[in-house]
Amino acid sequence: VDFLSGTSAVELIEPPKDVAQRFLNGDGPAPPRFARVTLVRGSADPPDVMEYKVGPILGCGTAGCDTASLETATIEPMLAPGAVPFQKRPYELSDV
């Protein structure tokens, strides 16, 4: 099966430094937030691990977020298929 594995399965992709600097200097908009999603693809042939860029994540700000929206989001592969073999999948408590 395909599954999200481990505590790092969904993490923030930090924004590019130049975009962050412009925002922090008051010269640009807040950079859009994206997630890196690590999916173990047991159904692939051969099985592998794929990372996806998911976002932008909208509707959240400095005050926290309970109403995140992915209305305009896309899912883009960040690796070539098979680049990370199944044996290198993230540690999962249920593996033991």
């Binding site: 099966v1 395909d2 599954f3 999200l4 969904v10 993490e11 923030l12 930090e14 924004p15 962050a20 925002f23 922090l24 807040a30 950079p31 937030r33 997630a35 999603v37 999916l39 159904s43 996806y52 998911v54 976002g55 994540i57 959240c60 700000g61 400095t62 926290g64 977020c65 309970d66 109403t67 995140a68 929206s69 992915l70 989001a73 899912i75």
Partner: peptide, 27 residues
């Protein structure tokens, strides 16, 4: 905030979105 990790709300929204687009994915 721009470097903060994803909030629980954001994480849930991402997981829900992935499962919507890829129904076979298990969490």
């Amino acid at each position: 905030w721009i470097f903060d990790s994803l909030s629980p709300g954001e994480t849930k929204a991402v997981v829900d979105f992935v499962k919507l687009k890829m129904p076979a994915v298990e969490t």
